[in-house]
Write a protein that binds this DNA or RNA. Sequence first.
DNA 1: GTGGATCCTAAGTT
DNA 2: AAACTTAGGATCC
Length: 264
Amino acid sequence: MGVVGRFRVRLAQDDAGVWLLSPRTPEAVAAVLRYLGPAALPGGLDGIERALEAEPVLSRVLPHTRGTALLVQDPWEVLISFIISQNNNIPKIIRSVEGLAAALGGPLEGGGHAFPSPEELARAPLRVLQRCLLGYRAPYVRAAARLVASGKLDLDVLRRVPEDAAREALLQVPGVGEKVADCVLLFGLGHHRAFPVDVWIRRALSRLYFRGGPPPSDAALRRFARSRFGPLAGYAQQHLYVYARTHLAGRHGALPTDRRRTAP
DNA sequence: GTGGATCCTAAGTT
DNA sequence: AAACTTAGGATCC
């Protein structure tokens, strides 16, 4: 169950692939196909995964992360969601996004509310955003919404310009730093060389490529990833992220800063 | 062992 | 570069 565009959809997944249970209208099918990208077709990810497996470290990661897809998400939703994600945890991020939809988004046919439009967010009082647990991020979100609503930031244009130009534009948005900019490039704008470096990616790279030692700077890690994974850097990031969250779950940070007392 | 105060972390950015 | 919302888990009496 979830929302794709303006459709409230029920999806299921089995070995054969992803199934759209409802609504099975041509419009909804088209929206879901577009959203899933290569993952919409059975075996659609095989070519990507084979290419990644040519890299020795990823060849050991892939057995744990097969089927990881890059979805084609709405860049506007991605921008706001990842501004909210800074210094935050996933359950609370979800509550914030759902809160914004409930408070400001238009109604959906099957019930529930769509993600608010730039205009809806731009004119919302800060107090409403605070009620959605945005905290100090509320002014960022509203400022970003005003940039988009006014047309000063055109996200559709950023799909068609070079990645570096799109990144520069995103970095001008309040609340957007290197990491969030990379997330928007990768998840919303289809720039598949982007490589968001967060705490989980740092852990994964430290463990898998730097013998558990302290990893280089984030900027150095991005360069490292780009030279190592090339045009599939974004896919590599997703597999490494999934791997880190499932196998390197720090249970209070076992990596890279191991602060557990060592047994005598 | 329980319970509450306190510290720390979490999809970072300014 | 210290500070930032806020919830939830860890650690400490």
